[in-house]
Design a protein around this nucleic acid. Structure first.
Lengths: 123, 123
DNA sequence: CTTGACCCTCACACTAATGTCACGGTTTAT
DNA sequence: ATAAACCGTGACATTAGTGTGAGGGTCAAG
């Protein structure tokens, strides 16, 4: 399978496929003419990469356990647990920050709206 | 007040003060020697900028209402309401996304831990 | 043999605020 | 007069994944 086919059947851009290779996530062989040749398993592999990217993991983190996940069930890969834990912690912090900003914004919004309506009554 | 003093008394780096100027948030006059001279109000102005940056607004957004906020009470500035609304919408989307990723991660984590403990019992 | 559809590499752009370095002028105190 | 402490501009780096374009090789069908 050449890169164009893999791109079409996965919906991932050629640019991204080459980037994943550069990050060590894909290792196609090269034909004599220099073209990348992907095994049939590459399709699933790309979908797996996308799955983890959508979980907010970096290519570097994914590179750390991808080889294991592709051979075994995810639950067999101990490498993945600390990554999940770290990501969860990070997400919790982000949510907390966003919620505090949200409260702050809502309060300010409320003050403005109240004051504006009281000004209207005075006019 | 020169830039070093303003930096010291606000805790904002000189680099950032110059950047704010470039973004139209600060407009110090220039002395004959080319040095920036800030008015005494600049200190409050910088604190105000920081406040809005910490609410996650961009310098461009801040530039849109800063002049008003510095002259009037915030509640007098209608320009600010749509910015707050937009930011709130954005934050809600981010929180939603983070929470769905969080659930997903927690489920996966749970599966792994359950399966691992069941494997231990088999050994 | 030419055209079109592939493929290759390299490299710059993007976002946004900040850090940092180079290079050079100014002011102040000794 | 010289050194230290300021100030100025300009430019590159950072993050991480992706888009995009240049310039050029390959291959298959007509």
């Amino acid at each position: 399978m050449k890169i164009g086919e893999l791109s079409t059947c996965t919906g991932v851009s050629i640019r991204s496929l080459r980037y994943y290779e550069q990050q060590g996530l894909l290792t196609p062989v090269r034909l004599e003419n220099g073209y990348r040749e992907y095994s049939p398993f590459a399709e699933e592999q790309v979908r797996t990469i996308q799955l983890y990217l959508n979980l907010g993991l970096s290519t570097e983190q994914i590179a750390g356990f991808l080889h294991c996940v592709l051979k075994n069930k995810e639950s067999f890969c101990e490498e993945i647990v600390p990554v999940y834990r770290e990501k969860l912690k990070e997400i919790d912090e982000q949510i907390k920050l966003l919620q505090s900003i949200k409260s702050n914004l809502e309060e300010r919004m409320q003050s403005i709206l109240e004051e504006q309506s009281s000004q209207e009554r005075e006019e």
